[in-house]
Structure formats: structure tokens, C-alpha cells
């Protein structure tokens, strides 16, 4: 239990997707003009990460890794399909997102209205694929560990984009040099926030 909590806290603060690895930067920079939409996108990322990472974990463990197919028959024990990782992961993500979109639209129209527009964007969000790839690199022992990691990264991402959007809303009233307005200052603020987050390194 303690281990799971450690993974969770670590992925929220120390290995924060945005500040430590720059994942999902594109949508992070573009969709952070208002706190409300930023929160919607953050929730959608959380949601998709929490579903696709454990799914990809199972696929990786039982289909792709070297010797993973040994549960099928002993002859398959030395098959190594790991070179298919990228294409399978992205297919799983794109498929899941499509499926989620349909399910949400059918059963919870309210949620669909707030998340719906972001879902197609998420299929090509680097944070999602990045989550799966980091999960593969870290060799978690069970699927529950990978779920805890996914949830933590998602919440970390949510935290980052909401904080950033809040700062950006205030920025309208700030006096910034003309050429630096918009994108330039956005990069610099993210950098400063990142330095702030480095303070968590000691935990």
C-alpha cells in the first residue's frame, strides 16, 4: 500500500509530466487561456491515462515482452514482439479514445459537453503515449502499480495546466514587452513553475 502511495506522489510532484518531461506541452500551451477549459482538458487527460496505461501494461506484459507469450504454449516462449510496442500502444490509445467518446456521448451527455471536444485531441497528446512508454520503462510489478502511476501522472498534469491557466488569466493585466507577449512569456512562466516544482525533489 505504501509503495502504491509512493508511486502516486512521485508521479504527481517529482516526475511531473509537464515540468520534468515536457509531455503534452502543445495542448498545454494552446488550451490554457481559461481555467475552466484547462480543467476540462486536464480531467480528460487524467481519465484517458488511467484507462490506457493499465491496458497497455497488460498488453505489454502478456503479449509483447520477450517470453511474454509463454502462457500460450511453450513453443512461443522465445518470441519477442517488443519492436511492435509503439504501433500497438498508439493503436490502443486511439481506439480507447474513440470508444470513450462514444460511450460518454451515449450515457453522460453532460460530461460529453465538457470533455467531448478535448477527447479527439487527446489521441495525439504526447502525455498519453508518454505515460505508456514510461510505464514500460519502469517495469512495474503489477497492474495496480501502473494504475497508481497513471492516476498520479494525470493529476500532476491537471495540476500543472490549471495552475498555469490561472497565472495566464492574471497575465492579461501585466505589462509585458510587446514581442514577448503570448507564447514567449508562456514558455518562461512554465520554466519558472518548473523550477518551483524542483523543490519537491527532496521528498
Amino acid at each position: 500500500m505504501k509503495e502504491l502511495f509512493d508511486i502516486f506522489v512521485r508521479s504527481v510532484f517529482i516526475d511531473n509530466m509537464v515540468f520534468a518531461y515536457f509531455l503534452g506541452m502543445c495542448s498545454y500551451l494552446v488550451i490554457s487561456k481559461e481555467v475552466k477549459t484547462a480543467f476540462g482538458l486536464g480531467l480528460a487527460v487524467c481519465f484517458v491515462l488511467a484507462i490506457t496505461v493499465p491496458l497497455n501494461y497488460l498488453i505489454d506484459k502478456y503479449l509483447l515482452q520477450e517470453g511474454a507469450l509463454s502462457w500460450l504454449s511453450s513453443r512461443m516462449a522465445d518470441v519477442d514482439l517488443s519492436y511492435l510496442t509503439l504501433i500497438i500502444f498508439i493503436a490502443v490509445i486511439a481506439g480507447t479514445v474513440q470508444l470513450l467518446e462514444m460511450v460518454i456521448e451515449r450515457y453522460t451527455p453532460g460530461l460529453y459537453l465538457s470533455l467531448g471536444i478535448f477527447l479527439p485531441l487527446i489521441a495525439v497528446n504526447c502525455a498519453i503515449l508518454g505515460g505508456s512508454l514510461f510505464m514500460q520503462e519502469r517495469h512495474f510489478p503489477t497492474v495496480i502499480h501502473s494504475f497508481s502511476y497513471a492516476l498520479g501522472s494525470g493529476i500532476g498534469w491537471l495540476l500543472a495546466i490549471v495552475a498555469f491557466a490561472a497565472i495566464r488569466e492574471r497575465l492579461k493585466y501585466a505589462d509585458i514587452p510587446k514581442p514577448l507577449e503570448g507564447k514567449g512569456i508562456a514558455y518562461i512562466i512554465t520554466g519558472l513553475l518548473g523550477i518551483g516544482f524542483m523543490a519537491f525533489l527532496g521528498i
Partner: peptide, 10 residues
Amino acid sequence: LPPMALILVG
């Protein structure tokens, strides 16, 4: 450190 890259791009 990673944040410096962002500041440089800025």
C-alpha cells in the same frame, strides 16, 4: 535542469 530549456525557448 529541464526548466531552463523552456526559458531559453522563451
